[in-house]
Design a protein around this nucleic acid. Structure first.
Lengths: 166, 166
DNA sequence: AATGCAGTTGCAAATTATTCGCATCTGAAA
DNA sequence: TTTCAGATGCGAATAATTTGCAACTGCATT
């Protein structure tokens, strides 16, 4: 099975981020190889880019980044690869409201998203309480929870504020 | 605390469902008129259909139902109307994983969705606890929660065993 | 009831995001 | 090396939704 060992650190971004990303990309590559997935130039490139990504890029953006490194990568391959990687469990796909699907590596613990309605920024969070509550609710309805999607949409708090409308 | 409702199967349920739907459609129509929204043949048809719907139809399905009543309704108008009604706050749009957007009237209290991974059925539920928790989490991150999306994906519980896969 | 016109509609063409067909390449096992 | 299933690039195909535009129609006003 493909089981990347999960680190307990959130996304890295220090000076040795590249080193860390390389290590993570390498680990994913290994895992995939072990699962009989053929490793190609374009797949390695994508894995590295995904491991380096600190944001939530969509297929087109990944394609843009990929061809900076290897101009021969086509968009279809990006899509095909992402689908394959998702099936292998090494990347996660997020389809936010109306937007194109966004991707991130799956080698980190599960988390949910908070989207800033003004800036579009996406923050990650995790709440054990909510995770548990969801399982309970599912159970009450007679279901075993397989996965879920939770997105919070909000605006930055302002302590004192002048009312305005639109 | 946790209220479960309908699935995504077609059609009405109780005898006076039509009456109720008519009443609700009428109410929405009034509200829209009061807001200066011009009422057309196709809009009335759609409002009625939406009020009657007990499932979560997508635009194409609404179009199909609409033209049973008024063959002149075009798909573009369905889309345009849905967008307008959403903007007016009388319908809600739900974009589930990869699927086409589904719609329902917004004249009922907010609820979240539980999707049956095997049958595709959609059940509604509402949990005050989760609502509160979400607001708390948003606040912790420095945000005022504007809205959210919570979807639970699961499979029907089986009391014991059944060691089968798929 | 007739009029005016901005808001609506139908239709077709355009967009956007993603997938597919297919001929050609290429990992990697033998 | 040789071999070939699986991978790739390219362009065409889908699917969902939007838009341009000329014709139509609520409805406020005469």
């Amino acid at each position: 099975m493909t089981r990347a060992k999960d680190s307990n650190e959130p996304r890295a971004m220090s000076a040795d981020a590249d080193t860390d990303a390389d290590r993570r990309a390498g680990r994913m590559e290994e895992a995939l190889r072990a699962d009989g997935v053929r490793m190609t130039r374009q797949r390695s490139a994508l894995l590295k880019i995904l491991a380096e990504a600190e944001d939530h890029p969509d297929a087109v953006e990944l394609h843009r980044r990929a061809r900076e490194v290897d101009a021969s990568v086509s968009l279809s391959t990006v899509y095909r690869t992402l689908t394959a990687l998702e099936a292998q469990g090494v990347v996660q796909r997020h389809a936010f409201e109306g937007e194109a699907a966004k991707f991130e590596t799956a080698d980190m613990p599960h988390h949910d998203h908070m989207i800033d309605l003004d800036s579009g920024e996406i923050h990650e969070f995790r709440s054990e309480k909510i995770e548990r509550l969801q399982r309970e609710i599912a159970a009450e309805m007679g279901y075993d929870l397989v996965h879920h999607r939770l997105e919070l949409y909000g605006r930055k708090q302002r302590r004192s504020e002048v009312p305005k409308d639109d």
